[in-house]
């Protein structure tokens, strides 16, 4: 590896650490989710057992792609920093994220997204499922996380709701795809 490339790489990692400093120790493992096209989704909750060995702080993902991964459509680029932890593969991952994240962290995400949520949805309402660009897809996935986190803040406001039943006992067995067109649309 050329020396300047190495330096660039370390700088990037340092910036990443700084950015994440305020948050809990994060898992660096990135998981390529084949169901969502060219979408790197952060495995922010845990690591699948067969991937344990790959858990290493420096990932072999080309920097250019890594950068691209975090990009949202231009009007919403101020929210880029939420992409690694909150653009998740599917509904099951989002529910798990909610169960495994502190209320303070959920609130930080909620507070960051909510002021722009209506504008984002207006933007997304001009886009069709099945035709989203990677940045648009990330934007939708952030909003889907907001949909999951909404009740945590708006209904319960506590991590230990007394009637909270263990959600792992009631999993999704048929799930709605995040970004595919749905049967019956436009009829």
């Amino acid at each position: 590896m050329a020396k300047n490339q190495q330096t660039h790489r370390l700088k990037f990692a340092a910036a990443q650490l700084e950015r994440d400093g305020a948050r809990r120790p994060r898992c660096w493992y990135r998981h390529l989710d084949p169901s969502d096209g060219d979408c790197y989704a952060e495995n922010a909750i845990g690591v699948h057992p067969h991937n344990q060995a790959q858990q290493t702080p420096f990932q072999e993902i080309p920097l250019a792609r890594r950068k691209n991964h975090d990009e949202l459509p231009e009007p919403f680029s101020g929210l880029d920093k939420w992409v690694p932890d909150w653009a998740l593969p599917d509904s099951t991952a989002r529910f798990k994220k909610r169960r495994c994240t502190s209320l303070a962290e959920i609130r930080a995400f909620y507070d960051a997204l909510l002021p722009q949520a209506d504008a984002i949805l207006k933007y997304l309402s001009t886009r069709q499922l099945g035709t989203l660009t990677p940045p648009e897809g990330k934007l939708l996935k952030l909003m889907l996380s907001l949909a999951e986190m909404g009740p945590a803040i708006e209904w319960y406001g506590t991590e230990n709701h007394p009637e909270a039943f263990d959600g792992r006992r009631f999993p999704l067995v048929v799930t709605l795809a995040d970004m595919s067109p749905q049967p019956g649309a436009h009829t």
């Binding site: 997304l124 001009t126 886009r127 648009e136 909003m143 709605l176 970004m179 749905q182």
Partner: peptide, 9 residues
Amino acid sequence: PAQNAAQRF
């Protein structure tokens, strides 16, 4: 069915 990406939300 969602007619656009916002309705998926």
